[in-house]
Design a protein around this nucleic acid. Structure first.
Length: 479
DNA sequence: AAAAAAC
C-alpha cells in the first residue's frame, strides 16, 4: 500500500490530493508514479476507472514550474468530453501549486480558445484535430513541452487519429518524457511507442484487478419493438439515482431521450452531432444531478468519470466487446456498486456469448419485468420519498391540516391517498423507436467477410459523408 | 454499419 505522503511529492500537490480525498494510491498509481516521477517514458496498460488520470496527472503537475511561461505538458485524448474531464482533474491536482490546465477541443470558438491560451496555462488537455490546428497556427508553442501523455491510445487508433498523433508528437522537442496509456496493445501502438518513446517501462494492472467485481451484469432478451416499454418498466422498478442508457446510433439516442421525456423521465441525450455547447451543457447537468438519465452513443463510453452512476443500460448491445467493457465501466466506480443491464433480441444471443467469453464473466438472465412490478416499484418509491421527508423534516406547517383531515377520515385512508398522489402512474404514451437495422447473430454479417474481392467495397459503402471525411484526411496528409 | 474528431 502506497500513500501519497510516502512519494515525497511537493507538499502543495499532496495538499491538493488530500483535498480531493486521495490518500492512498490505486494499484496503477502505485506502479506508474515512481516511473513517471523519475522521468522515464512509460507505457501503462490499464482500463479506465483505475485512477489513470492521477497516474499521469501527478507527474505532470509535479514537474511543471508555475513561474514558467510556455506550455509544459500536453495530454491528448480521443473525445472532447474526456479532454474537459482530464483538464478539470489536472486543475484540481494543480490547484495549490498554481498549475493551470486548459482544455482545447473542436466545436468551441477558436478565437476564444486563443484568448484563453494567451492567459498562459501551463498544461493542455485536448483532442487531436484542434491541437493540430493550434500547432499550425502557432497559438500553441512547443518549445517548453517536457511531457506528453497519450490517453486511451488504442481508442485514438480505432478512430483513425494515428496520423494526427504522429504529426503532433513530431512537433515536440525530442528531449521529453512520453507517457502512453492504452487498454490494449495492438501492433500499431507498439510501433508508435517504438518511434516516439525512449526505453519505455511497461506497467500492467493484473487481469484480476482489471475485472470489475463491483458491477453486476445482467441481460434481458426482448423483441426490438418492446425494448422501450421494458426499459421504462425497469426504470420504474429500479429507480436508478443516476443512469446511462447507451444506444447504437445517434438517431436512436435522439428518439430514446425524446421518448423518455414524453413519459416523464428526466433524460437528455448526448452524441457527436449535437453542438459542442449542447454537449457541454448536458454533461454538466448530468454531473450536477439535474438530469437522472443520460442517453448516449459510444461518445460517452470511454473514460468519462461521473461519480454516482448506479445503472448502465445497454439499450442496444454494443458491436464491439471492448466497447461493452468500457460502457459498463461507467458504473461501479470509486468503490461503489453498479448494475449493468444489456438488452438483446433473440438473434443476438451469440454475440452476447462472445462478449461473455471475452470478459470471462457470465451475465445473469433477467426475466421480463411485469407491469405489476413496475407499479409496485413506483409505489415503493413513493413510500421512500415519504420516509425520507419524515427524516428530513420540514412538514411541520402541514400538521394543522393533517389534524383537520383526521377528523374526516382514518389515518390509513389518508396515507393511502397521499401515497397514490406521490406515485407516478405507469405512462403508456406511445413512443416509437426506429428499427435498428444491422444484426449480429446473422451469418455473413459483414464483419469478417470471407473470400477476396468483396472486402474492398467496404471503403466505398460509407457513401457521401464517409468519403468526405476520407478526403479531408487525405488532404491533410499533403500539407 | 456506427461512432468519434478540425474549419
Amino acid at each position: 500500500m502506497t500513500t501519497f505522503q510516502e512519494l515525497g511529492l511537493d507538499p502543495q500537490v499532496t495538499r491538493s490530493l488530500s483535498d480531493m480525498g486521495f490518500e492512498e494510491a490505486t494499484p496503477i498509481q502505485a506502479e506508474a508514479l515512481p516511473v513517471g516521477l523519475s522521468g522515464s517514458d512509460l507505457i501503462g496498460q490499464a482500463q479506465t476507472g483505475t485512477g489513470k488520470t492521477a497516474a499521469f496527472g501527478i507527474p505532470l503537475i509535479e514537474k511543471a514550474d508555475p513561474t514558467l511561461g510556455g506550455i509544459q505538458g500536453i495530454v491528448i485524448t480521443p473525445t472532447r468530453e474526456l479532454a474537459v474531464q482530464v483538464a478539470e482533474e489536472l486543475n484540481k491536482i494543480g490547484q495549490h501549486k498554481g498549475i493551470r490546465t486548459l482544455p482545447v477541443y473542436g466545436g468551441q470558438d477558436i478565437e476564444r480558445q486563443i484568448r484563453s491560451l494567451k492567459k498562459r496555462p501551463h498544461l493542455i488537455a485536448g483532442t487531436p484535430g484542434r491541437l493540430l490546428d493550434h500547432l499550425r497556427r502557432r497559438t500553441i508553442r512547443t518549445d517548453h513541452v517536457a511531457i506528453t501523455v497519450l490517453d486511451e491510445a488504442d481508442e485514438m487508433l480505432n478512430m483513425g487519429f494515428i496520423e494526427d498523433i504522429e504529426a503532433i508528437l513530431g512537433q515536440f522537442p525530442e528531449e521529453r518524457q512520453t507517457l502512453l496509456f492504452s487498454a490494449t496493445m495492438p501492433e500499431q501502438i507498439r510501433r508508435l511507442a517504438g518511434r516516439f518513446m525512449t526505453n519505455p517501462q511497461t506497467i500492467r494492472v493484473k487481469a484480476k484487478e482489471m475485472t470489475m467485481p463491483r458491477i453486476r451484469q445482467q441481460f434481458l432478451e426482448v423483441p426490438q419493438r418492446h425494448k422501450f416499454d421494458i426499459l421504462c418498466r425497469l426504470l420504474d422498478i429500479q429507480s436508478p439515482e443516476l443512469a446511462i442508457i447507451f444506444g447504437r446510433t445517434k438517431k436512436r439516442v435522439d428518439e430514446l431521450s425524446e421518448g423518455l421525456n414524453k413519459r416523464g423521465y428526466s433524460a437528455e441525450g448526448i452524441h457527436g452531432d449535437l453542438t459542442q455547447a449542447r454537449r457541454d451543457t448536458v454533461m454538466r447537468q448530468f454531473r450536477e444531478g439535474m438530469i437522472d438519465v443520460l442517453v448516449a452513443t459510444d461518445v460517452a463510453a470511454r473514460g468519462l468519470d461521473i461519480s454516482g452512476v448506479t445503472h448502465v443500460y445497454n439499450f442496444d448491445i454494443p458491436q464491439d466487446p471492448e466497447s461493452y467493457v468500457h460502457r459498463i465501466g461507467r458504473t461501479g466506480r470509486a468503490g461503489n456498486d453498479g448494475l449493468a443491464i444489456t438488452f438483446i433480441t433473440s438473434r443476438e444471443i451469440g454475440h452476447l456469448r462472445t462478449i461473455e467469453r471475452l470478459t470471462k464473466k457470465r451475465m445473469e438472465r433477467l426475466p421480463i419485468p411485469s407491469m405489476d412490478a413496475a407499479i409496485e416499484g413506483q409505489q415503493r418509491l413513493a413510500m421512500d420519498k415519504l420516509n425520507k421527508l419524515i427524516k428530513e423534516g420540514g412538514y411541520q406547517p402541514y400538521k394543522t391540516l393533517a389534524e383537520e383531515l383526521l377528523e374526516e377520515s382514518d389515518s390509513v385512508t389518508l396515507l393511502s391517498a397521499a401515497l397514490k398522489l406521490l406515485t407516478k402512474e405507469p405512462d403508456t404514451t406511445p413512443v416509437r423507436i426506429s428499427e435498428d437495422s444491422p444484426s449480429f447473430g446473422k451469418k455473413g454479417g459483414g464483419r469478417f467477410r470471407k473470400g477476396g474481392g468483396g472486402g474492398h467495397n467496404r471503403h466505398r459503402s460509407g457513401g457521401g459523408s464517409g468519403g468526405h471525411s476520407g478526403n479531408r484526411r487525405r488532404q491533410h496528409r499533403h500539407n
